[in-house]
Simulated assay, not measured.
Amino acid sequence: MPSLEHESLAMLFQNRPSLAAEILHNALKVDVPDYKRARVETGDLTEWNPAEFRADAVVVFEAVAPVLAVVVEIQLRRDKGKRWRWPVYLAGLRARTRCPAILLVICTDAGIADWCAEPIDLGHPDWTLTPLVLKPEAVPVVTDAAEAVRDPELAVLSTVTHGAAYDRARMFHALLSAVAALEDVDRAELYIDIVLRALPGTPATELEAMMKSDASPYKSDLARRNYARGAAEAKVEAILTVLEVRGVPVPSEARERITACTDVAQIEAWLKRAAITRTVNALFD
């Protein structure tokens, strides 16, 4: 069963597929073809039964057609089985996408990284797979707030890897600036949780203290958005309550439309109409 840290790191690539290209090009100096978009592909690389092959994340870069496919594996411990499965991942993905395929392994431990980087002899003459491994020392140290805002997933990976370093105060400030800028509050909280779980005791305590500081961009911005979100949710509940008390039927489709709305101005308009409307359709007019 994959650990929470394992799943959390894989999620960074699922949330930001282009992170794979940034690491390949900037950290590992691998040429990445020009592409127009990056998309997450299913991690299921099974081609026959009963064996099942599932990668942690698969990213496909496309121009007009796929130009590069990347298998991203989060490796936090030695697993001899991976040395048999990784070649299958690449072969299956290459056959499915009809483009070159690369294996990118992410490690937070230097010893595990060295083990993952060992060449895999596939038996056929001159056929050897050498995994591309992002070792801890190759992970960029993100201490610039503007850079972190542009690439919050890289800021999370940087803090998880280097968060116990001596210059962590600047790194933490950059991370908090990045998560504060995210519009998705749940995503921001998830990224903070990932980092706090990964950091050892003292750095984690320092980050928590920084988060509670009135000067923290995370505290001020996230508190404001949490308040706005809570106020909007309360008004949505008020709309449904008013309609129920007045005996106005609310079909499931209408209820879903009301509860899914995040436009505060629209919610307020519906709340005013709920007091006088006779049908839910009139609420939306």
Results as ranks from 00 to 15, higher is better:
L190H: 12
G230H: 08
G163R: 01
A228I: 07
R225W: 08
L222D: 00
Y218G: 04
A181R: 09
S216F: 00
L222V: 15
M171A: 14
L190G: 04
V195S: 12
L190I: 10
A228E: 13
L182F: 03
I192V: 15
A223Q: 07
D167K: 06
A188C: 06
L175Q: 04
A169M: 05
L176C: 04
A165V: 01
E189A: 11
Y191D: 01
E208I: 10
A232S: 13
H162D: 03
A169W: 01
R225H: 07
T205V: 10
S220R: 14
P200M: 12
M171F: 05
E206K: 07
D184V: 01
K219E: 03
A181I: 06
Y191N: 03
A209S: 14
G230R: 10
T205S: 15
A164M: 03
S177R: 09
A180M: 06
P200F: 13
R197L: 10
N226W: 13
A232K: 05
L207T: 03
D186T: 11
R224D: 11
D186F: 08
A169V: 07
N226F: 10
S177D: 08
G201Y: 12
R229Q: 14
L196M: 12
K212Y: 02
L199R: 05
A223L: 14
D193S: 15
V185W: 01
D167L: 05
A178M: 09
E183S: 15
E183M: 09
A223R: 07
Y218Q: 04
E189Q: 13
R229I: 13
P203Y: 05
A231M: 11
T205F: 06
A178H: 07
R187P: 01
D184H: 09
A180V: 03
E208P: 01
S213H: 07
P203W: 09
L199T: 04
M211T: 04
R168T: 04
A232E: 06
L190R: 15
D184I: 04
L175W: 06
K212T: 06
G201T: 12
H173W: 09
A228L: 11
D186A: 15
L207N: 02
R229Y: 12
G230M: 06
A223K: 04
L176V: 01
E233Y: 11
R170M: 11
P200V: 10
A164R: 02
Y191V: 00
A232T: 10
D186E: 15
M210G: 01
L199W: 08
A232H: 04
P203K: 08
N226R: 15
R229G: 03
R225A: 02
P200I: 10
L196K: 10
R168A: 10
A181P: 06
D214E: 13
A223V: 03
M211P: 02
Y218M: 03
E233N: 15
